[in-house]
């Protein structure tokens, strides 16, 4: 049986992980490679690295980091942030990234999804969608929720699937950072609407939130950052609990 995936997300700036990370055994909490390795040892099924570097030199630094991660890591990982061209994606693929995640670039130029899928296969293309409820409608947002778009979330996700997205990473901006649980209502609607895997993101605060999202929705994976970084939820404990609730996990 296909396992439900647990995915820690790391923010990376200039090749270093940002946000406080509070791991007991970590020599260098800013080193994405060491952190990634630690997560793999704990039983993470996959990792997402989000590049938040804004400078022009960003690409080179990121490629070097991706190569270091691929050398060390024996689980799959996704790179997101600032990918706007086929060339960006190809450089990451050749450096060992298993998937790339695109967000704003896809909204601005939906044909990019099609081009990436044709060039590298649908399995390589994750479309990340940030959504927020505005006047009763789920609307796609950009720039970490600061910029609203015309797009309705459900329509955009359907379109992304049709254009060749291999997976959807759906972040509820209303839930993100609240630690009050995932947006199960929306996630359930989305998973019933499309036929590609969905990663739930935004709102994880407790182990029960993970159980809830897997029991109440058809999502394939759940992503979180701070609850893992600050060791509030140790991944082995989380997986044991999920297994106890008959949710298929990799132990």
């Amino acid at each position: 049986m296909l396992s439900k995936r647990i995915i820690p997300c790391l923010d990376v700036k200039d090749g270093r992980t940002v946000k406080g990370v509070n791991f007991v055994d970590l020599k260098d909490a800013g080193d994405p490679v060491e952190l990634a390795w630690q997560y793999a040892q704990q039983g993470a099924d996959e990792l997402v690295f989000l590049d938040i570097t804004a400078t022009h030199e960003r690409r080179k630094t990121m490629i070097e980091m991706v190569k270091s991660v691929a050398r060390q890591l024996n689980i799959p990982f996704t790179i997101g942030g600032g990918i706007t061209t086929i060339q960006d994606a190809e450089a990451l693929l050749n450096a060992g990234a298993d998937k790339i995640s695109i967000n704003s670039a896809a909204v601005k130029n939906p044909a990019l999804i099609e081009e990436l899928a044709a060039a590298f296969g649908v399995q390589f293309v994750v479309v990340a969608v940030d959504t927020k409820l505005v006047e009763g409608k789920n609307r796609v947002h950009l720039n970490g929720g600061r910029l609203i778009t015309e797009l309705e979330t459900e329509n955009w996700i359907k379109k992304a699937e049709n254009m060749g997205a291999g997976e959807i990473l759906l972040t509820s901006m209303d839930h993100d950072g609240t630690k009050q649980g995932f947006d199960c209502k929306l996630l359930n609607r989305i998973t019933q609407m499309i036929n590609i895997p969905v990663i739930a993101s935004g709102g994880a605060g407790t182990i029960d939130h993970f159980i809830e999202v897997f029991e109440k929705t058809g999502v394939d994976a759940a992503l979180a950052a701070s609850v893992f970084h600050f060791a509030e939820i140790p991944i082995p404990d989380l997986k044991q609990k999920l297994k106890y609730h008959n949710i298929p996990v990799r132990l």
Binding site: M1, L2, S3, R5, D45, E46, V122, Q123, G166, E167, N195, I196, P197, D220, A221, R250
Partner: peptide, 15 residues
């Protein structure tokens, strides 16, 4: 086969 109620691609850890 989509009709079997599965998502495509088959992506993730399977035993």
């Amino acid at each position: 086969d989509k009709k079997l109620g599965i998502k495509i691609p088959h992506m993730g850890w399977n035993n």
